[in-house]
């Protein structure tokens, strides 16, 4: 059984690694819409998939966050990707299966996955 004692060891480990994170102006932000509409449409597994994929690849310059309703409920789950210096990209009708492609092509290689964007859906 896990005990809170283990957390102390985890803290020691993490404190030594904390300063590897890059500064804010290089951070890529992934924002998942998590209002009632997003949650009902399946945003929770999408958020989890992004965190898992970012973690697996050890991407320290990516921040995965949540927001409320993005405004086009019929296209939920919606994910916005902000790469510094580039225009915001909105991905719609997301699911966990689409996530690895977005992380690999857009976040790592800076190539927007056009097929999944709001422009392709409309």
């Amino acid at each position: 059984m896990k005990s809170l004692e283990e957390l102390k060891a985890l803290r020691e480990q993490m404190q030594s690694k904390m300063n590897v994170r890059k500064d804010d102006n290089e951070t890529i932000r992934v924002v998942v819409g998590m209002a009632t509409c997003g949650i009902a449409a399946g945003a929770r597994p999408v958020l989890n998939a992004f965190m898992e994929e970012v973690n697996k690849r050890g991407l320290k310059n990516v921040q995965v966050t949540q927001t409320g309703c993005i405004g086009v409920c019929r296209l939920e789950p919606i994910v916005e990707v902000f790469v510094p210096g580039q225009e915001k990209v909105t991905y719609v009708k997301m699911n966990a299966e689409k996530v690895p492609a977005i992380v690999a092509q857009h976040i790592v290689n800076k190539q927007v996955v056009t097929d999944y964007t709001i422009g392709a859906a409309e």
């Binding site: 896990k2 283990e6 957390l7 102390k8 803290r11 993490m14 904390m18 973690n55």
Partner: peptide
């Protein structure tokens, strides 16, 4: 209380 100023949103903590 244990983690101090380390954010609970860190992937290592969420995994734990």
């Amino acid at each position: 209380e244990i983690m101090g100023d380390i954010s609970l949103a860190e992937p290592e903590i969420l995994a734990w």
